[in-house]
């Protein structure tokens, strides 16, 4: 059986908000290491990779690997019924037809349980190589969100170029062009999460669909910082770390020149 108790139930809402615009269903894999999800959007352009480590739960028990296929739209509806301060427990049997969500209010004066039907999902798993990125950019997540939103007002595709001087975001649309350069500022007085840091072994440049990048920024409430990892001619990774818990990562295939 699987049973996991999460003290910060609001975290589940944030995680679901970060994926609900991209996928409609997914297999949550329960394993002794934690709860994970890998799923692609319907166009197979982007991939979501979530890990919530077992150590991040107040109580975690998982005897064997259990794939828990869930409709994300329905899951969002159920988790919305939890208060943002509620403690959430997720429970299911080894071969579940249903998953139970138990919500306990912080003061323990209200207890609710919701049971949701599981579904069988034949999803394709991709092997994402554990690679060293040629360019890694760490920046405030709110700044990245703002930047993607501003770029999307002008064009559909953003070209991201990373050099040691900084990161240049460029786009072109019917009304004109936009360029925003973010420079690394590690020596200032900023707190760590307000800094922009760039680590590169060689300059990298590629084009990406802004519609997807904008969807990824729905994960902004999960982390004060976001990390972009790029390798020439490979998908970009956009990572939001969840403190003491794991991560939400998005991979996005680049635009290919004909």
């Amino acid at each position: 059986m699987f049973e996991a108790r999460l003290l910060q139930g609001g975290l589940l809402k944030k995680v679901l908000d970060s994926i609900k615009d991209i996928i409609t269903e997914g297999n949550f894999d329960c394993s002794p290491n934690g709860l994970s999800l890998q799923a692609m959007d319907s166009s197979h352009v982007s991939l979501i990779d979530i890990l919530l480590e077992s150590e991040g739960f107040e109580h975690y028990r998982c005897d064997r690997n259990i794939p828990m296929g869930l409709n994300i739209t329905n899951l969002v509806k159920m988790i919305k019924c939890a208060g943002s301060e509620d403690i959430v427990t997720i429970k299911c049997e080894d071969k579940p037809d249903n998953v139970t969500f138990l919500f306990e209010s912080k003061d323990n004066d209200k207890i609710s349980d919701f049971e949701m039907k599981t579904m069988t999902i034949d999803d394709e798993h991709l092997l994402v190589p554990d690679q060293t990125y040629t360019a890694v950019v760490k920046m405030p997540s709110a700044e990245f969100q703002r930047l993607c939103r501003d770029m999307a007002a002008i064009g559909d595709t953003v070209n991201i170029s990373v050099t040691k001087e900084g990161v240049r975001f460029s786009t072109t649309g019917d009304m004109g062009t936009a360029n925003i350069t973010v420079r690394p500022n590690p020596s200032g007085d900023q707190k760590e999460e307000e800094r922009t840091e760039v680590q590169i072994t060689e300059p990298v440049s590629a084009g990406f669909a802004l519609r997807y990048l904008n969807s990824f920024t729905k994960a902004t409430p999960l982390s004060p910082t976001v990390t972009l990892g790029m390798v020439p001619n490979l998908p970009i990774v956009v990572e939001y770390k969840i403190a003491d818990m794991g991560h939400v990562r998005y991979y996005l295939a680049p635009k290919i020149e004909d």
């Binding site: 352009v45 991709l126 092997l127 490979l234 991979y251 295939a253 680049p254 635009k255 020149e257 004909d258």
Partner: peptide, 14 residues
């Protein structure tokens, strides 16, 4: 003109 790549052309299936 650029085309949108698909993930399968970059990552292998498990």
């Amino acid at each position: 003109k650029s085309q949108q790549g698909r993930l399968e052309s970059f990552f292998g299936a498990v």
